[in-house]
Design a protein around this nucleic acid. Structure first.
Length: 580
DNA sequence: CGGACAAGCTGA
DNA sequence: CAGCTTGTCCGG
């Protein structure tokens, strides 16, 4: 069993392979004897130290380590990622201070793939050539700034003319819509992860949301990332990898063109590639009419949340979506039986729901989940801002108004809807969108607040369409001169990037520097050796015990993190944190 | 990670 | 010194 292990030479019909176990805590790889038809990327099972583990072959025909008695693989399960993705997983582990298994899992089919379907035959080019898309693809590394209502299909089609193309979408709705149109154009389209085997075998277009950055795509010829500015492209959990950056690296390694699209490109994208955009006239036409209401000029006797222009829109009978982000993220708890507000017994402050008790936000006193007034144990979250606005708009507009919550399945059947920014993801069409309090976004205490606000306005703009279709966006603000308001008004997103770029340079925040947020109990122990380095700066600890590690650029930061040992325990390292 | 084994603590 | 906990090492 296991061949001539003592001499370190495999038997005929076997080879020595290196396996990465599917166990993130194991940072070593191990060598095994394998059948000679095993390929890099194959999913295998191994016996390791009395355990049976899954894993991936990451190298074949390696020099067996001296003095080790090699064991055979326990099982070869099936197809896995190709060698380029196995290598990309190692790069991503460095780039986001994670472990390769995280990425290899994302790059692997959900269930075992024993065989592959036939590969797609080369596609026949058809359709009208899109000049702007062709420009972007020719540029190699391009940021294609298209207005919100622009059709992204011509770009995908144009890219697919070059050969197998990877398309990373910002939503499943966008993915389904585009996939259907590409199929109608006669292309073999594999949706990731559902059609993993077809993608692995060879398709004309491999398409999906964030995880599709890790989809197989043999003979990759072009990479396209749609709405690269959208925060959904970044994984929230650690490692906080970004599909845009993975796609960019993948295209660079393959030596193929990469196009990032966005109505309002991120500073990261603009720092990376050449900006390609339509004529000013075309870009303006693709943005809706924007109305700015200066809340400072509104009649102070009525609530300045409901301007005359807004009430007119509510009464207009058109389909209107109102966005109101609750101020202070804390939702209030209200008794389901008697509607009394749940307060702290000690300090009368509003309480929040803890693990199994109510916790005071101010003094941290805990008490059981029971209403003080009526003794009911049923409390509900009340998002005061939105519920109140719904009632007010209904009264002022004298029309029914529906409230959209993040989790409820069906949309209210009313022409006018109110919700937090989540409403912009739930609704796919409207005549007008009104931001009741844009300042809540503009002034949010997050370093990307400006870009995030611009992204919301762009999302609203997509909902209502361009100027030709009569689309309208209403912005109520006390800062009408703010660059986000001006950018929307003039359909010129570069106004935001210009201001933001300078601000980030002054504050030394990305992309002017590279940062990682380190939190969790072992954070102090982890950053300790980093304090002695001259190429990184450690800020903190913050009130929650977390640290910020900063370096001049990504390479310096990631090299430093890579060289730092991980103490045990629940440590979170977020490289390029979306929020600080 | 999780098993193996070694070093340290306790109780009789 | 058995019997148990805690720590460190290592796996092919």
């Amino acid at each position: 069993m296991g061949g001539n292990a003592a001499s370190g030479r495999p038997e005929v019909g076997t080879r020595v392979v290196t396996v990465r176990a599917d166990e993130p805590a194991l940072d070593k790889t191990f060598d095994y004897l394998a059948p000679s038809d095993v390929r890099v990327g194959d999913v295998v099972r191994i016996d390791l130290h009395g355990r049976r583990l899954g894993g991936w072959v990451v190298d074949v025909d390696v020099e067996p380590p001296a003095g080790v008695d090699l064991k055979p693989l326990a099982k070869v399960s099936g197809w896995g990622p190709s060698r380029d993705l196995v290598d990309l997983a190692d790069w991503a582990a460095w780039r986001w201070a994670g472990q390769p298994p995280h990425f290899l899992r994302t790059a692997t089919a959900a269930s075992v793939v024993r065989g592959l379907p036939p590969a797609a035959r080369p596609a026949s080019a058809q359709g009208v050539e899109d000049a702007l898309a062709a420009d972007a693809l020719r540029a190699g590394r391009a940021v294609l700034r298209l207005p919100p209502s622009a059709d992204l299909f011509p770009l995908a089609l144009q890219a697919a003319r070059l050969g197998p193309t990877l398309v990373v979408c910002s939503s499943h709705a966008q993915e389904r819509h585009l996939a259907a149109r590409l199929r109608r154009a006669g292309l073999v389209v594999a949706a990731h992860p559902r059609d993993w085997a077809q993608a692995r075998a060879g398709a004309h277009v491999v398409i999906g949301a964030r995880a599709a950055a890790w989809a197989p795509c043999p003979d990759l010829a072009a990479v396209v990332v749609l709405d690269e500015h959208e925060e959904v492209h970044q994984e929230e959990a650690s490692p906080t990898w970004h599909a845009r950056d993975v796609a960019v690296e993948r295209a660079a390694r393959a030596g193929v063109p990469c196009v990032l699209t966005s109505p309002c490109p991120s500073l990261e994208a603009l720092a990376w590639g050449a900006l390609v955009s339509p004529s000013r006239a075309d870009e303006r036409a693709g943005w809706p009419v924007v109305d700015v209401v200066d809340r400072r000029r509104e009649d102070p006797l009525r609530s300045d949340l409901y301007s005359e222009k807004l009430v007119d829109l509510v009464r207009s009978g058109r389909r209107l979506v109102c966005v109101l982000n609750r101020k202070g993220r804390a939702a209030l708890l209200v008794c389901a039986a008697c509607s009394d507000l749940a307060r702290c017994e000690t300090c009368q402050s509003a309480v929040a729901m803890g693990e199994s008790t109510l916790v005071c936000r101010r003094c941290a006193t805990t008490r059981p989940v029971v209403c003080q007034s009526c003794g009911s144990g049923k409390l509900k979250q009340r998002r005061l801002g939105v519920s109140r606005a719904r009632e007010d708009l209904e009264r002022l507009g004298r029309v029914p108004v529906g409230e959209v919550t993040g989790d409820s399945d069906d949309l209210p059947d009313t022409n006018v809807l109110v919700g937090t920014e989540a409403v912009l993801r739930r609704v796919d069409r409207a005549d007008a969108v009104a931001f009741l309090d844009l300042d809540a976004e503009l002034l949010a205490p997050r370093y990307r607040a400006g870009e995030e606000a611009m992204a919301l306005v762009a999302r609203a703009a997509r909902l209502v369409g361009g100027k030709a279709g009569g689309g309208r966006v209403l912005l109520q603000t006390r800062q009408p001169k703010h660059e986000v308001v001006q950018a929307a008004l003039l359909a010129d997103p570069s106004r935001v990037s210009a201001v933001e770029r300078e601000r980030r340079a002054i504050l030394r925040l990305p992309p002017a520097a590279a940062v990682a947020h380190v939190s969790g109990a072992p954070a102090a122990a982890y950053v300790e050796p980093l304090l002695g380095r001259i190429d990184v700066e450690v800020l903190g600890p913050a009130a929650d015990g977390s640290y910020l590690v900063r370096a001049a650029d990504v390479r310096t930061l990631c090299d430093a993190l890579d060289a730092t040992p991980r103490p045990g325990g629940r440590l979170r390292v977020a490289v390029d944190p979306a929020r600080l």
